[in-house]
Simulated assay, not measured.
Amino acid sequence: MRTVIAEDNPVLRDGLTRLLADYDIDVLAAVDNADDLVTAAASLQPDIVVADVRMPPTHTDEGLRAALRIRQDHPDMGVLVFSQWVETSYARRLLADHPARIGYLLKDRIVRTDDFVDALRRVAAGGTALDPEVVRQLLAAPAVDRGVASLSPREREILDLVAQGRSNPAIAEQLNLAGRSVEKHVTAIFTKLDLPQARTDHRRVLAVLRYLNASAAGDR
């Protein structure tokens, strides 16, 4: 796997570079600003980019705006936002435009390097990886959606974990449920959200988007 890192803190930037090298992940470039990130993504074509949110010159939202541009220009490229800050409006746009190959993790909530590397690999492979706190803030004000409103508390809990990029076996382990039970809950979610099986649609992603869109509508 090949990646480009954008982080203005030199200690963290060098640390990430060395960490990923230990996991046989090739860091093609490690830059300290959003403009260089966009340039490196276009010229080097990595499998995934890792971007901080706040970078020079204003230290506000440069990293997220760069992530959105990369997603627009290179939809098959993974993007993992790795930051101390949750910017819900940008997170929704990242998920809405291209729901696959996206991650949003919080620096102070990563307790195991293996978790970070696993999330990076999952996003690069076409999945999602969202910190539970990011999901919580995105879903803090759900709007009235008949399908979403009909979900049981357990179904909502499972959909939260689906939004974090968890597989059915991982959900079963975390909630101490049987695998078949999780499968039945997921199927019920698809049914309540009117998401029939289709060859070209990813129902897990579509279910998460319905949930996030309900939250976004509630914010307006």
Rank of each mutant, 00 (worst) to 15 (best):
A140G: 10
V11H: 15
A125M: 09
A217G: 10
V27P: 05
A207S: 14
D47A: 14
N33R: 05
L44M: 11
T3F: 03
H98N: 13
R54A: 15
A66Y: 08
D61N: 04
V205R: 12
I25F: 00
R166A: 13
A143G: 15
R203W: 03
R204Q: 15
G103S: 06
V4F: 07
L68V: 08
A42N: 14
L175D: 08
V208Y: 09
G103L: 07
L130E: 09
P46V: 14
V81K: 07
L28T: 09
Q174G: 01
P57H: 01
A30S: 15
E157C: 12
L105S: 12
V135M: 10
L37I: 03
H59G: 00
I102E: 00
A163R: 10
A67H: 01
V205L: 14
R92L: 11
S43V: 12
R71A: 12
T113E: 13
V86M: 14
T200Y: 07
D14Q: 12
R210I: 03
S83E: 06
V144I: 15
V186N: 04
S152V: 01
G127F: 12
L37R: 05
I5A: 13
G127L: 08
G126F: 00
T200R: 11
I48W: 09
G127M: 07
L161D: 07
A141D: 15
A21E: 02
P99N: 12
E157H: 08
L161W: 05
A141M: 15
R112Q: 03
E173R: 14
L138E: 10
V79T: 08
V111R: 05
A21I: 01
H202L: 14
V111P: 03
I70W: 08
V205W: 09
E183G: 10
G218Q: 05
D32G: 15
R199G: 10
P99L: 12
D32L: 09
F116Y: 09
R18P: 04
L94W: 02
D115I: 02
L209F: 08
D61L: 10
L16N: 05
D131P: 12
D76S: 14
A125I: 11
L120T: 06
L120E: 07
L120G: 11
H59L: 02
Q45H: 05
R156W: 06
T88W: 07
A6D: 08
A67Y: 04
A42W: 06
R156F: 07
A143Y: 08
A29Q: 02
R65P: 07
D114H: 11
D97K: 00
I48M: 04
T17N: 02
D8S: 06
T17R: 01
F116P: 05
S83M: 03
D76P: 08
P56Q: 14
R154H: 07
L159M: 02
D108G: 06
A170Y: 04
I25C: 00
R2N: 10
V86Y: 06
L105P: 15
V81R: 01
L20F: 07
D47N: 13
F116R: 01
L209N: 01
L19G: 04
D52T: 01
L195N: 10
R136K: 06
R69H: 14
L16E: 03
V79N: 07
V31G: 04
R101Q: 09
V50F: 03
Q174N: 04
R13D: 05
G15V: 11
D47M: 02
M77G: 11
L209W: 04
V81D: 02
T88S: 09
A51T: 04
P57W: 05
L138R: 03
Q84E: 15
